[in-house]
Nucleic acid binder design. Structure first.
Length: 282
DNA sequence: TGCCAGGCGACGC
DNA sequence: GCGTCGCATGGC
């Protein structure tokens, strides 16, 4: 079958694979170098080689309006990496290893909901739960016919769709005790109680407080939602991996927490430490 | 098989 | 305000 594709150039430091497979999001798969996934209700496949990014199933308009902002390709991450390293030179190994990672600009609801599911959970299982939710409650995605996994042919379910799901069903999907949180969060968001547009631009502590008013959203989940779903790059999620790094490599504290690009630095550390668990995360 | 996971809310102090 | 505990489930 004939397929639309778009080829664009991207800066040499960017890694689509490291970005999409980095634990910021849970809906991408790497099929032998071909990155396949769904965001904003659209299924796409990507290949990166020789400084170029090839998007299969997307035209140039899709690229400009969806994928370029999603991958945050207009931001100068080389400059950010330099700034981060000046603030915290002990990050040099992490930055050398994971410096190709961008912070994705995900849909706020998907980021919030995904990280509610993520708590005290492991990544393979988080992915499984989310794919079941998408398969059962998501709208059919654009370009779904090309999807390699059935669930990838569906958008992330809306808050309204999930608000109508019985809590018991979330349990059957493997959510465990998070089922009650999911019910509560979906209903309150669907009811319009959480102003996403305001959270994007609110003073950061106010944004944190608004998200944490949701039952099931604590410091870590709020921080992840703000970083990955609301473009707040100053946020610094601390999970068990990062906590260990802060107790070893960065013992005594680090000036990067609270700096404007703390979230980017956190992503460098997270990527590095997950692949070098013995290191402590430098 | 146990231990652990991109934590949280409830509770006691 | 801070430390502790129970929580559902399955990946490893």
């Amino acid at each position: 079958m004939e397929e639309i594709s778009t080829i664009v150039s991207c800066r040499s430091g960017f890694s689509a694979a490291d970005t999409l497979m980095s634990g910021q999001c849970f809906r991408w798969s790497d099929y032998d170098g071909r990155l396949c996934g769904t965001a904003f209700g659209r299924y796409v496949e990507m290949e990166q080689k020789d400084g170029r990014l090839i998007l299969y199933g997307a035209d140039e308009s899709d690229y400009r309006s969806v994928w370029r902002p999603y991958l945050d390709l207009d931001r100068d991450y080389d400059a950010i990496r330099e700034t981060v390293l000046q603030t915290e030179p002990r990050l040099s190994d992490s930055a050398a290893y994971a410096g190709g990672v961008h912070i994705l600009a995900q849909e706020p609801w998907e980021a919030l909901c995904s990280f509610v599911i993520s708590q005290n959970n492991n990544i393979p299982r988080i992915r499984g739960i989310i794919s079941r939710l998408c398969l059962h409650y998501g709208e059919k995605a654009f370009n779904a016919g090309a999807a390699r996994e059935e669930s990838a042919g569906y958008a992330f379910p809306t808050p309204e769709a999930l608000a109508g799901v019985p809590e018991e069903t979330f349990r059957q999907f493997g959510c465990g005790y998070r089922a009650a949180y999911l019910t509560e969060v979906s209903r309150r968001v669907a009811a319009g109680e959480i102003d996403f547009a305001y959270i994007k631009k609110a003073p950061i502590d106010e944004a944190r407080k608004m998200l944490r008013s949701l039952k099931g959203v604590g410091p870590k989940v709020a921080e992840c939602a703000l970083l990955y779903g609301f473009g707040r790059l100053e946020c610094f999620p601390v999970d068990v991996w990062i906590r260990r790094a802060l107790e070893t490599e960065f013992a005594g504290g680090t000036a990067l927490i609270g700096s404007p690009y703390a979230g980017v630095a956190q992503q460098y550390i997270f990527e590095y430490i997950r692949r070098h668990p013995e290191s402590g995360g430098k």
